[in-house]
């Protein structure tokens, strides 16, 4: 059997993965007022990592991204629950949120909301769950 030659997919994936990561972060950031959010941002992020898994092999990607994805999912759920519990400290109902307008050096007047912290937890949970499923069922042993 002759040696497999996949130079084209490797060259394309090195560019496309950067674009998909950027798009995932854009989806995540725009989630408060426009279509997007933690769930779909996490799924786009996971699809970029799946493209890495397809192009290179599992061993190489695991060596370069040394994260236990089950741990990532657990940390995400923990962050989401803790931001929900944090609202109890201010004597308001569970999962309440607040936002304010701040003046940042580069961005100017920016709206910062505490819902972003909850969204980070959701995104981490989605990334961890999706990649754990893919790595479990994609194993050919």
């Amino acid at each position: 059997m002759k040696e497999p030659n996949d130079i084209i997919i490797r060259s394309v994936a090195k560019v496309a993965v950067v674009i998909i990561f950027t798009f995932a972060i854009n989806l995540f950031i725009s989630g408060h007022h426009y279509p997007g959010g933690g769930f779909i941002g996490g799924l786009a992020f996971a699809s970029a990592v799946i493209l890495l898994f397809l192009t290179f092999d599992i061993e190489t990607v695991r060596k370069n991204i040394p994260l236990d994805f089950k741990m990532v999912a657990a940390i995400g759920v923990l962050i989401a629950v803790l931001t929900g519990l944090g609202s109890l400290l201010f004597d308001v109902p569970f999962l309440s949120q607040a936002f304010g307008y701040f003046y940042l050096p580069i961005f100017g007047k920016t709206e910062l909301a505490t819902a972003v912290l909850f969204d980070i937890g959701v995104a981490l949970a989605v990334i961890g769950t999706a990649l754990t499923i893919i790595m479990s069922i994609g194993d050919d042993r």
């Binding site: 497999p4 397809l54 290179f56 599992i58 061993e59 893919i134 050919d140 042993r141």
Partner: peptide, 14 residues
């Protein structure tokens, strides 16, 4: 990838 090699995600690249 599945049609060509019979496996989607490889463990170790030959």
């Amino acid at each position: 990838r599945y049609l060509e090699r019979g496996v989607v995600i490889e463990r170790k690249h030959p």
